[in-house]
Computed example of a mutant assay.
Amino acid sequence: MTMSLGPYASFIVTSYAAAAIVVAILIGWVVLDYRNQARRLRELDRSGVTRRSGRSAVDTP
């Protein structure tokens, strides 16, 4: 199936390529940030820091 994009073919192809590149960069950024945050949480857990959200209202001093 061949599509004719007309005189604006280069603009259309460039726009789709730019959008695909931006989406790929955002996905990569999220993956790297997730790994960084997970690593930082593991370090905090190892050092003995606890999460405040784990306490109930009754446990508050």
Rank of each mutant, 00 (worst) to 15 (best):
M3G: 02
S4T: 09
S4R: 08
G6C: 06
Y8W: 06
F11R: 11
F11G: 09
I12A: 11
I12V: 14
T14L: 10
T14Q: 12
T14M: 11
T14A: 14
S15V: 12
S15R: 08
A17S: 08
A18E: 12
A19Y: 03
A19K: 13
A20V: 11
I21Y: 11
V23A: 13
V23C: 05
V23D: 09
V23S: 06
A24R: 01
A24F: 06
I25R: 05
W29H: 07
V30I: 15
V31H: 00
V31M: 02
V31I: 14
L32Y: 08
L32T: 09
D33N: 09
Q37N: 06
Q37H: 11
Q37D: 05
A38L: 04
A38G: 01
A38Q: 04
R39K: 15
R39G: 10
R40E: 03
R40Q: 04
L41W: 12
R42K: 12
R42Y: 09
R42A: 13
E43G: 15
L44N: 12
L44K: 12
R46N: 08
S47H: 00
G48F: 01
V49W: 01
V49Y: 02
R51V: 14
R51P: 00
R51D: 05
R52A: 11
R52C: 03
G54L: 00
G54K: 04
G54R: 04
A57R: 15
A57Q: 15
A57L: 15
V58F: 03
V58G: 03
D59F: 03
P61L: 04
P61Y: 10
P61T: 02
